[in-house]
Design a protein around this nucleic acid. Sequence first.
DNA 1: CAGAAACTGATACAGTGTATCATGACACTC
DNA 2: GAGTGTCATGATACACTGTATCAGTTTCTG
Lengths: 142, 142
Amino acid sequence: MTLSARANPDLLATLEDRGYRVTRPRREVVNLLGQKQEGFSAEEVCAELPGVGRATVYRSIKLLLEAGVVCKLMLPNGGQKYSLARGEHHHHTVCVMCGTVGEFRDSSVERVLRTIGADIPGKIVGHRMEFYITCQDCLDTS
Amino acid sequence: MTLSARANPDLLATLEDRGYRVTRPRREVVNLLGQKQEGFSAEEVCAELPGVGRATVYRSIKLLLEAGVVCKLMLPNGGQKYSLARGEHHHHTVCVMCGTVGEFRDSSVERVLRTIGADIPGKIVGHRMEFYITCQDCLDTS
DNA sequence: CAGAAACTGATACAGTGTATCATGACACTC
DNA sequence: GAGTGTCATGATACACTGTATCAGTTTCTG
């Protein structure tokens, strides 16, 4: 298994490649997200970027979602969060205590997913997998 | 892999066992859910049970969620749906065209999940896995 | 630099779920 | 079977997340 600690993709370039314009608000959003090591919520981004409208923040995140460089994840309590996708296909771990999001890749997962996929009626177009954990930090401090 | 087609659990008994009262509204909600073969939304249930208040519908679903007999799933478009959990641990398939929810169990999944779990730092407290598909019906009629 | 196209931000709205609280229903005892 | 404490209900208001609208602005291209 590979726990990732890799460089962020160039989010701005991703948008540009997809034909979107490079504007000040998009630059600000993308810069901020690039620094986020953990999951984040849209409102959190709005709060940290008072110079960018709420609608624009949501729109930018949506574009990045569609481009596949940001993932949306569901917390066990029903809440939602976003997380940067650092390149390759991966899955997430979410700490149920502190909310920290991690990601991992594991070839055995993909192999099994392919096997299962072959048995599911219809055509697989995607999948989602999340692990809910209590992270080491939270275990230590409790 | 096992595609499920089993009897619904006795939802009302589940609530009773957990110390909740058996009331007319809860009976109505539970009866309706027991008939739902596919996923459902809370608002849909509200609409089909005009004699039960919206808050009560949400509260009942929440209780069933906590009891583990109802699952909440996330659609690829960000929407949400509920689905009956027919007993054992399982995972879901969601058709991205018609929204129909299926469920499956596969021992190889669980085996791999355990293996991965051993490598993830911290303590695993749960996981979620969903397949997004285009179901056979939708493939046929397109 | 001019014009078309894309983007922004303020606002209003939509969907989903929760808090509040006066009223009503359950279940339990006598 | 009536009385009673507790729990549940439902109307309403609110919170949160996200989207639609639209006049005004910025960006890109020629």
